[in-house]
Design a protein around this nucleic acid. Structure first.
Length: 515
RNA sequence: CGGGGAGUGGCGCAGCCCGGUAGCGCGUCUGCUUUGGGAGCAGAGGGUCGCAGGUUCGAAUCCUGUCUCCCCGACCA
């Protein structure tokens, strides 16, 4: 572990209390705060800035795939929602419902819903938009020429969760939801898998968060889906986080909403639909993948500021020259390109000592921090700190001095190296925590023996039971607080026997504790 | 939703048992001195004690209700 001489920026370490550490990162990095509304959070500029970066890059990739953005209503008529039975069953327990459209005084200084203003048909606040979008698709699609219909929306959704955690599970959250309609199963399945691959590569390349893409077991499917796929990331405490999902919905939603097209033979045919989404939960994944005992570390690709310049102001006559030097440096850096975009650099001119302001940026996780003093300005130098290499072995903050020209010329490489390093570090940790030597139920229990930190995931072969046989397996795992995460897409067929059924193993799964 | 814990200046906490007009540390502000690596000294500002009722001459403190947060569980695309 860390040297005892290091005075970390946070008061709680990951080792001592991972849940408390997670909350401290969010508070100290000023990402989000409580709102006073149960399960809902205020996303502050630094947290929202990260979300905007995710949105911008993801939106570009969605559009590259030929998907068009739309916007559908927040409110869904109850009758729409009621049409698909499994869907209803899945979400009914967590719906916010609008029943009135006016308030009146209660005579005691308060307000109550006006009994005279009850809605004839209640509206539900969308927990997801399959039903409203399905209704629109039914209007928009007539002929095979209208297919495929590829839509996406960026929106908020509400699910009345029993237990919430900032970013990971909030009652209201922000996401994108793609909804597509296709002529047949193979086209819809191709789209489902395209979205999954989009999420996998986004997670790896942009979030620097290694994930395993695969199919969810039957018991974990989206309500109403024929097949559900996910990307699963391993957090630093060894638990799994489902960071994105993609569903092949078959014709169930098409049937419920009447999404039909006239095929080339003139027959009315049901469409095959898909839906897929990622949410603000990804930010929670970034925190628990890259955070350390000094706060967040933001991958440069999604950092609102990639480089922050802190002038060491002395409130004397030298400040003007120092600021001019820093402004030159800022302008030079802003001309550079890294990770395919212009470098985002902030000159932090707020009053206060650079040494003091530094820790705020360290906790926010800015990839590169520059502290520039009068001597640097005079000698055309910079002092640079890489957030992912914060400490020297002697416990001192790891500033590296170099010429301004060298730093500017190397800035893009440095940012790209931070991006790579974060990914490499997370991948190495993840790989070291995947256990492949467990082949029995007892072995699973031993591997996941009690403790605050979980050892990781177990990869094993199983017989892919269904129905009641699967339920029996799920119950056994539940007793160990374990879940089946997914079946990886490109896994070779495993050998041996299934630890749950004793039958020959036919596919690989990951078993883990999860968020 | 069940069990447990907690809400007191921006943040972290004490005070509550045993009612008597709210305190500490950090941060903030002012001044002076320092200052190339998380500054020192002095002073100052800042709180409807989550909210609503109740008991009482008097409530942060006792009682009832309620809201929010955290942990465990159940639930969870």
């Amino acid at each position: 572990m860390t040297q005892p001489s290091i005075k970390h920026a946070l008061s709680v370490t990951r080792e001592s209390d991972f849940a408390a550490w997670y909350q401290e990162v969010i508070a100290e990095a000023e990402m989000a705060e409580e709102s006073g509304v149960r399960g809902c959070m205020v996303i502050k500029p630094w947290g929202y800035g990260i979300w905007e970066r995710i949105q911008q890059i993801m939106d570009g990739r969605i559009k590259e795939a030929g998907v068009q953005n739309c916007y559908f209503p927040l409110f869904i008529p109850l009758s729409y929602f009621a049409k698909e039975a499994e869907h209803v069953e899945g979400f009914a327990k967590e719906m916010a419902v609008v029943t009135h459209h006016r308030l009146v005084s209660d005579g005691k200084g308060g307000l109550v819903p006006d009994p005279e203003a009850r809605l004839e048909e209640p509206l539900v606040v969308r927990p997801t938009s399959e039903t409203v979008i399905g209704a629109a698709m039914a209007r928009w699609i007539q002929s095979w020429r209208d297919l495929p219909l590829l839509t996406n929306q960026w929106a908020n959704v509400v699910r009345w969760e029993m237990r919430t955690r900032m970013f990971l599970r909030t009652s209201e959250f922000l996401w994108q939801e793609g909804h597509t309609a296709h002529a047949d199963r193979s086209d819809a399945m191709a789209e489902t898998l395209r979205a999954l691959e989009m999420y996998r590569s986004f997670s790896e390349d942009v979030l620097a968060m290694p994930v395993i893409a695969g199919e969810k077991p039957e018991n974990e499917r989206f309500p109403g889906a024929v097949a559900t796929y996910s990307i699963e990331a391993m957090m630093q405490d060894g638990k799994a986080l489902q960071a994105g999902t993609s569903h092949y919905l078959g014709t169930a939603f098409a049937e419920a909403a009447g999404i039909r097209y006239q095929d080339r033979e003139g027959q009315q045919t049901l469409c095959h639909t898909t839906s897929w989404g990622v949410s603000t939960r990804m930010i929670g994944g970034v925190i628990m993948t890259h955070g350390d005992d000094d706060g967040l570390r933001v991958p440069p690709a999604i950092a609102p500021h990639q480089i922050v310049i802190l002038p060491m102001l002395r409130e004397d006559d030298g400040d003007a020259a120092l600021l001019a030097y820093c402004e030159t440096l800022r302008a030079e850096l802003a001309q550079q390109s890294a990770l395919g975009e212009r470098v985002r650099v902030l000159l932090d001119k707020r009053p206060g000592k650079a040494t003091q302001k530094r820790w705020g940026w360290v906790k926010k996780g800015v990839p590169l921090i520059l502290e520039i003093g009068g001597r640097d300005a005079a000698g055309e130098q910079v002092s640079a700190l890489r957030r992912d290499r914060l400490w020297r072995a002697d416990g001192k903050v790891n500033f590296v001095g170099q010429s301004r020209g060298d730093f500017v010329a190397g800035a893009a490489d440095a940012l790209e190296d931070v991006q790579r390093s974060l990914h490499a570090e997370a991948t190495a940790r993840r790989d070291a925590q995947i256990e492949r030597g467990v082949s029995t139920l007892d072995g699973l229990a031993d591997y996941f023996a009690e403790g605050n930190r979980y050892p990781g995931w177990v990869e094993l072969g199983w017989s892919r039971p269904t129905g009641a046989a699967l339920e029996a397996v799920v119950a056994k795992l539940k007793a160990l607080k374990l879940t089946i995460r997914n079946t990886p897409m490109d896994a070779p067929a495993p050998g041996g026997t299934c630890p749950f059924t004793g039958e020959p193993a036919v596919e690989t799964i990951y078993v883990a504790r999860s968020y």
